[in-house]
């Protein structure tokens, strides 16, 4: 279901305000609302690192990473005048990022229903380390089997280390929904991991390595 986009407006209107951001962000938010296109370069400079990191983690070093980042920034600029609360600029940017990746994952879900053998592709930057590349490819293939709405919650919570309240806020749904989806994702992950016990142990080794 398209729960994320439909609930985005609701989330922006009804979530409690965050602590104020620093003056630079407030000025940037004001400039974005005034003239989004002219602010594009500043917006990119301020959020490029955050957006890249979030897309990278959510999609898993994807071959289409840069296209997705481009889409996120275009959405930020095109919708800049609609930013309601300048104090939530950072959250708003993250929410757009999550929503853009979610839409992409939904498209891929649908594509997989059509073509069951859709290959999993990694970003070329990871060619450098063949062993790591293989590991990530297998992990990504496992993540690809989670439905978009569960994957987003799973990655934000377990990979990005966000609290469930934060996940709910970013995705625009309630804490109860976030908990329910995480529960479903954990159960599905359990079934998938049972079929690939070596992958979990490989990951543990990877983490334990000095």
């Amino acid at each position: 279901m398209s729960a994320l986009p439909a609930q985005r407006k609701h989330a922006q209107q009804e979530r409690p305000a965050e602590p104020p951001q620093d003056a630079d962000d407030l000025a940037l938010a004001a400039a974005l609302r005034e003239n989004p296109t002219a602010t594009a370069e500043r917006i990119h400079a301020r959020f490029a690192k955050d957006v890249n990191r979030l897309v990278w983690r959510l999609l898993g070093a994807d071959a289409e990473h840069h296209d997705l980042v481009q889409q996120v920034f275009l959405k930020i600029i095109v919708n800049g005048r609609r930013l309601r609360d300048p104090e939530r600029l950072s959250s708003w940017v993250q929410a757009i990022t999550v929503n853009t990746v979610y839409e992409e994952l939904r498209k891929r879900d649908l594509r997989r229903l059509l073509h069951r053998d859709t290959p999993t592709n990694l970003h070329p930057n990871l060619v450098r380390d063949v062993e790591l590349r293989d590991l990530l490819l297998r992990a990504k293939a496992m993540m690809d089997k989670l439905p978009a709405k569960e994957r987003i919650v799973f990655v934000l919570h377990h990979v990005e280390g966000r609290t469930l309240a934060d996940v709910a806020d970013l995705c625009g749904f309630s804490l109860a929904t976030a908990k329910r989806r995480l529960g479903a994702a954990n159960r599905r992950f359990e079934r998938l991991a049972a079929g690939a016990p070596d992958l979990l142990s490989l990951f543990s080794r990877e983490r334990d390595a000095p």
């Binding site: 690192k49 890249n52 990191r53 897309v55 990278w56 983690r57 898993g60 070093a61 990473h65 840069h66 970003h123 930057n125 790591l132 590991l135 990530l136 992990a139 799973f154 990655v155 919570h157 377990h158 990979v159 990005e160 280390g161 994702a185 954990n186 992950f189 359990e190 991991a193 979990l200 990951f203 543990s204 990877e206 983490r207």
Partner: peptide, 17 residues
């Protein structure tokens, strides 16, 4: 296990391209 997997995946992925 999901938590461990997530943490290890985050480390393997790094911060971005």
């Amino acid at each position: 296990a999901a938590k461990r997997f997530g943490a290890a995946l985050a480390e393997a992925l790094g911060e971005g391209p």
